[in-house]
Design a protein around this nucleic acid. Structure first.
Lengths: 193, 193
DNA sequence: CGTTCGTCTTAATCTACATTAACTCTCCCT
DNA sequence: AGGGAGAGTTAATGTAGATTAAGACGAACG
């Protein structure tokens, strides 16, 4: 199993001694996820903090008409979680599944709690991770309320420059908050052909 | 100066020794803020993490037509910050001002950084604070994409039950993402008079 | 290797909410 | 006390984006 990606993700923020690193690795689980396979379904409790090493996951919410609304994409080196469900251990409102065949590493909440007690540096890591996530959501919210649909599209292109090439257009539409039909129309009328 | 509110906010999550508490208090600043007075303006760097003890603050973004969009209200016992600006020390996209005459306690980022090094328990506190904030933004986002305007209004009433009584309706409208005119219409047609 | 399923497109129609404008009311400010 | 600004209301008209429907294309699968 290759843990280099997750270790570099963490050691960008904190330095670990060899034994701390080994202890951390002993808590990790590795999993292959097929396209469309769920890692979390609405109503379940989100017990795992998940890190993507291959492929791409997404989290999304479903409205009462069954429409799906993507909150986040997670390409390699990104974390994904329904945070309220994770910290309060209550039913999730989000679904998490794989957009393509993927590989993830996850750690159980109970192990994470223990890890943070045993190795307080992981408190710092968790803080930085959560602060970055909060900053992202704050700015996403700003984009959503201040930008038009086409501006949100270009903002998306800057945020996920690699994904825009590989992601089905309907997933992008779902993220920026329009129908696939409308995104198609925008892209084919705004751009000079 | 009365630090009991901020101390109880913190000791709900971590326990402090007397000297740690004193060190923490030595880093705090107290400030009265008049209605409409800014604590942060777009383009400035957000150097302060602010805690409200009296009154009510709000953070909001401005669109290119000058429209204001409220991201968060902060009644007593709430924290408020432009997180990206705070952690990266880059220009803020948010404005923070007082909706009514208020009193706040704030701590400088540089002091917070030092505090977290000197007293690692504050890493834990910061983590919990950021995780809760992230969870709130995630759920706000879910509400925004899955609920209609009137449903967002009732969701707001549950989130800020005390504020709904004191806040000008136009501030509520700005938070839920509709014009004051439309909120007025909704409230006077949906409810049986 | 044909068929079925998912993706993308185009176009007509529809709707939730915005915009504009005008009027009222209250509550400060001097 | 008078007047001006901000808050709320009502109603006409406007529009960004949804919905519905239909066809074209590619790729996955038996």
């Amino acid at each position: 199993m290759d843990y280099s990606l997750i270790l570099s993700n963490i050691t960008k923020h904190i330095n670990l001694y060899k034994e701390e690193e080994e202890y951390f690795i002993s808590l990790l689980h590795y999993k292959r996820v097929k396209k469309r396979q769920y890692l979390l379904e609405e109503g379940e409790v989100n017990t795992k903090l998940t890190f993507v090493t291959q492929g791409c996951l997404r989290s999304y919410a479903v409205d009462k008409n069954g429409g799906e609304h993507v909150l986040q994409f997670a390409p390699p080196n990104w974390w994904i979680v329904d945070m309220r469900s994770f910290i309060k251990q209550e039913p999730a409102r989000l679904n998490i599944d794989a957009i393509e065949d993927s590989e993830v590493i996850y750690i159980m909440k109970t192990d994470m709690d223990e890890l943070q007690i045993q190795v307080p540096k992981f408190e710092r890591f968790g803080r930085i991770l959560a602060q970055n996530a909060m900053a992202s959501y704050q700015h996403r919210q700003i984009d959503n309320v201040t930008l038009s649909a086409i501006e949100r599209y270009t903002s998306f292109c800057h945020l996920y420059p690699s994904l825009i090439l590989t992601l089905p257009q309907k997933q992008v539409a779902s993220y920026i908050g329009v129908t696939p039909e409308f995104l198609s129309k925008m892209l084919n009328t705004v751009v000079i052909k």
